[in-house]
Each structure stands twice: as C-alpha cells, then as structure tokens.
Simulated assay, not measured.
Amino acid sequence: MNKKIVHDALVLFAFTVVLGLILGVVYGITKPSIDQVNYEKTQAAYKQVFEDAASFEEYSDFDADAAAALMTEKGFSDQIDSVNTALDASGNVIGYVLTVTAKDASQASITFSVGIQNDGTVNGYSITNIAETPGLGMKAQEEAFYSQFEGKNVDSFTVVKAAPSSDSEIESISGATITSKAMANGVNACIAYFQNVLGGTN
C-alpha cells in the first residue's frame, strides 16, 4: 500500500514538473507576441491623443511615488501610471501623453491616456481599459462625450447635466454621471500633474 502511494506521488510529481516545463516553454514563446500586441495597443492610444507626434518616449524623470504623493496632495484618487513625451520628426518635445487610472468609476477602474500640448491644451483621451455598464458608462468611449475634452486649455473640467456654458464644462452622459465624473477627474489629474511637474504654463 505504501509503495503504491509513493509510486502515485512520484508519478504526480513528475507530471507536475513536465506540465510546468511545458507551460514555461509556451509562455516563453507567446510572451514576445503578447508584449508586442500590448505595445502596439499602447502606441495606438498615444497616437490617437497626439496625432502630430512622430514618436513617443518614456519621460525619464517620472517617479510613481512622487506622482502618487502629488495626487493625494491635490485631492485625487486617480493614479498616474506613466508619462511619455510626444516628439515631432526632429525629436523636439511637443507635449506629453499621460496614462491615468481613474478609480472612482461606477463599475471598475478605467485606464486611459491623455494628450496634453506644451501650452496645456488637452488633445483628448483614449481609453485602454474600461468595464462600465453597456449603453451607459461605456458611452465614455463615444465621440459625443470624449470630443468635449478636445482642444481645451483649462485648469480643470467640471461635469454638468445641462448644455455646457464654458470650455471647462463637460455635459454628463445621460444615466452615467459617475462615469462622466470619473473621466473628468482623470483628465483633471493629468492636468494637475502637467501643471506641477512638466512645466505647465497655466
């Protein structure tokens, strides 16, 4: 009986080792492809919010801890995930693309990239991860909503339920005020980071 238990245990162990090796090989093969897909998705998001840029480079002075401290200081629950410089064909910095995670949405966090020109003008945003309610919060991906942020140079955005009366006002998605505010807060967090860290002129 004991021999059978030992035998079965050894067989199970061998099976586990072989399976682990196979999974390791598969991961090694597929990881470059997954990384490439993620890279292309990210670059597409950057390009969507900064069409004039010829390329993008990681902002070398980005400090996640300092960014988190700044967000807390300014009263944001949002998280600045990364900052990239937007470069023209000659390599000159023409603005920045900030990736932010808004943690105050109605269903789950929303991650998106925001393009900001050197003079503080917001180009717009591009969502890379969202899980809001279909037909409601998911409308944050639609042009009717996101276009309201484009080409605006303001200190911050405020969500309103009526038609906007100034560049700083964003009309809420009907039935999705929480999502609307989460998007505005995320953009505002990026503006705050830009103004305090990247040499904003506002």
Rank of each mutant, 00 (worst) to 15 (best):
N123F: 10
S147D: 07
P134D: 04
F112Y: 14
L136G: 07
K139A: 13
A140Q: 10
F157Y: 09
S147C: 01
P134S: 12
D119Y: 07
F157M: 11
I116V: 13
E132G: 03
I130K: 06
A144R: 03
G135A: 08
T158S: 13
T111M: 09
E150F: 00
V114G: 07
I127D: 02
A131C: 04
D119V: 04
F112L: 08
N123I: 08
N118I: 10
S156C: 04
A144D: 11
T121M: 14
K152I: 01
G124P: 02
V159G: 13
G151M: 13
D155N: 14
G115H: 09
G151H: 07
Q117Y: 11
G124T: 01
A140Y: 05
K139W: 04
Y146F: 14
G115Q: 09
F145Y: 08
G120D: 05
N153M: 11
A131G: 08
E142F: 01
E142S: 01
M138T: 09
E143A: 14
I130N: 07
Q117P: 03
T128S: 09
T121W: 06
M138K: 13
L136F: 15
E132H: 06
V154K: 10
T133K: 12
G120R: 02
L136T: 06
D119A: 10
Q148M: 12
V159D: 08
S126V: 00
V122Q: 14
G115D: 05
F157L: 07
V122W: 13
N118H: 12
E143R: 07
G137V: 02
I130Y: 05
V154Q: 09
V114L: 11
G115L: 06
M138N: 10
S126H: 08
T111S: 15
M138E: 15
I130R: 02
S147W: 00
Y125V: 03
E142A: 01
L136M: 15
Y146T: 03
K152D: 00
T133S: 14
T121Y: 06
G137D: 08
T111K: 15
G124L: 03
E150L: 06
